[in-house]
Design a protein around this nucleic acid. Structure first.
Lengths: 346, 346
DNA sequence: CTGAAAGCGCTAACAC
DNA sequence: GTGTTAGCGCTTTCAG
């Protein structure tokens, strides 16, 4: 069988004290005599004793662990977010229990919550983008889990803590830049419109056109599904539907990549004949041909803020003080200007 | 305070039975009368009772949870691996405790193990690539954690369970393809040479040259650090050092991307004047200009095999049967041929 | 078939 | 300062 980790009992008997005294030592309580303390310390070292987080969680009714629900980890966005969550949580002394949804639009979330709660997590970070109906449960009355939830990437709502990038603002920044560069026939390749983020980015495009006094037509945009493949199809459609088009605001970098490829194949010069702005600033986009102008979202910052918010809520609830009024936090993206949109060299 | 989840006691008293009867019901033991069972079931439903995984782990000395140690989650490789681990573990009924190392070459792994063990994980999957000295501890005598460890992406060793892609074979496949296409002056851009994977890929390049009777010179290769930026520098160096070069085997797709960009800027035609093969098959590589030939590693499969192996070891150890002889599992990659290396159109 | 008692590893509350 | 008792939520004997 297993070698068996030492328990508090073993340490106690090896040091010739009671388990309570050992407990006091490992919790750094003041009421232990220096001699006893150091004697116990030595035994702990020698035996390589490590207190059981499980037993502690049970008795303290506090686990110092967070449940993280994620989806699409094989994509770069979600994994960057997770990476941020992991490092910030680590630093704050929280462990992470990870659950990945099999699909973005997974509806049956009950087992997820059950599993997380059965491990007594102190809070849950819902790091799944808002898509279609996949947030319907948020306001259900039955949703009293007894632990706080912080949501990432969803439409801010009253009484719910949400942390997200301002996708609308990002779209506006992209559009302002294109307009400033003198482009007037700006097309749009959107993400799937059941995604909240897609709709935000598209709304920014529409509003920017309107505000610039440019007429809008349904031929001016096409829907993709974030993949490069869908981007290639969307841009082909746009070239047909909108021949005067002189630039495109593309809802992510992967799709923008295939726009560049298509333009290259057709001999269309970028940025002279066609300006391109993407969204996300993936690592590769600085090395596209030509380098891609794009809206950068700082996923790490989102994660950091989310974890900090989570911990704040947990501590507040636990100290019995009045509960924190849940608030939404929307972070601004930044525009990274590169060659693909620099028509007017300054 | 918290609403407080119902405990087995509450269920028991609400159903008018003892706690073990409830226990028997939730564990689907046969020795409960149908009437009692259904009565208890109903109370469980009504109260939304969920047994505490913590308490269970404590008493069963078995947590059904795995510790996953990862690094560089913001990169696509590690996150694809994690994604695979998450879904396979989920399916097998195991929870995941995630720890991310702050750096790839983090040396102080003791706190990681302590944290994981304090949560009574049944096993640990070490999903950190082998770099420099970061595996020195593997064979230390002190490393008797009492739980099995499965290692990903490292040099197979006796008595240690390792799951990895065959990087050497991948390199050989890339080289065989280039040679078959008639390229003879094949350069190499390696990853950082303290990475085991880099060395494997580079060794394949060298050996393939040798086997093809092509002389080798130190001017024929340059070292990168996986990033596109480093790839740009490396290829610039190669063009200088090795003017006759007619093709390059690049150790990952990101660096290959900047080779394509450089060639484009210099007006070098690909694949006619310069053949390129990458490694990884990231999603974007099919949309590079031109589309990139590359060696595909199936990270998901690696993850799947690793989790299955882990569970096998756990179950074997737990059932008291003789321990499984640890074995290494090396999976073959596949070659994805695209335009960047298709000099001889068939 | 069902319940009572003991205990997983730890800590809170009280004694001494 | 230190030990004793009780109990977190559950399961495992062992009676009945």
């Amino acid at each position: 069988m297993r070698s068996g980790r030492p328990t508090i009992k073993k340490v106690a008997s090896a040091a010739g004290v009671s388990t309570q005294t050992v407990s006091r030592v490992i919790n750094e309580r003041p009421d232990v005599s220096p001699e006893t303390r150091s004697r116990v310390q030595k035994v702990i070292e020698r035996l390589g004793y490590q207190p059981s987080a499980l037993a502690r969680s049970l008795i303290r009714q506090r686990s110092y662990s967070l449940g993280i629900v994620s989806a699409g980890l094989k994509y770069i966005g979600p994994s960057r977010t997770l990476s941020g969550i992991a490092s910030v949580a680590e630093e704050a002394g929280y462990s992470l229990l990870l659950k990945e949804l099999p699909r973005f639009d997974a509806n049956d979330i009950t087992p997820i919550f059950r599993a997380l709660l059965s491990h007594h997590v102190d809070g849950i970070i819902w790091a799944v983008p808002e898509i279609g109906e996949n947030r319907n449960w948020v306001n259900e009355q039955t949703l009293d889990l007894g632990v706080p939830i912080v949501y990432l990437t969803m439409e801010p709502q009253a009484k719910i803590p949400v942390v997200s990038i301002d996708n609308y603002l990002g779209g506006k920044m992209a559009m302002a830049h294109l307009l400033e560069q003198g482009y007037r026939h700006i097309g749009h390749i959107s993400g799937p419109l059941d995604w909240w983020e897609s709709r935000q980015r598209m709304a920014a495009w529409k509003d920017a056109l309107k505000e610039a006094g440019i007429e809008f037509h349904d031929n001016y945009w096409a829907e993709g599904n974030w993949s490069s493949t869908s981007g290639a199809q969307a841009v082909a459609k746009l070239f047909e539907q909108y021949p005067e088009m002189d630039s495109i605001f593309v809802a992510n970098d992967q799709m923008a990549l295939s726009v560049l490829q298509t333009a290259y194949q057709k001999g269309i010069r970028i940025p002279e004949e066609l300006g391109i702005v993407g969204f996300d600033n993936i690592a590769e986009s600085a090395y596209f041909c030509p380098p891609l102008t794009t809206v950068q979202q700082d996923q790490y910052e989102v994660a950091k803020v989310a974890v900090e918010e989570m911990i704040k809520i947990i501590e507040a609830g636990w100290q019995g003080g009045e509960l924190i009024e849940p608030k939404s936090i929307i972070l601004p993206p930044t525009l990274v200007v590169r060659q693909s949109s620099m028509r007017s060299k300054v």
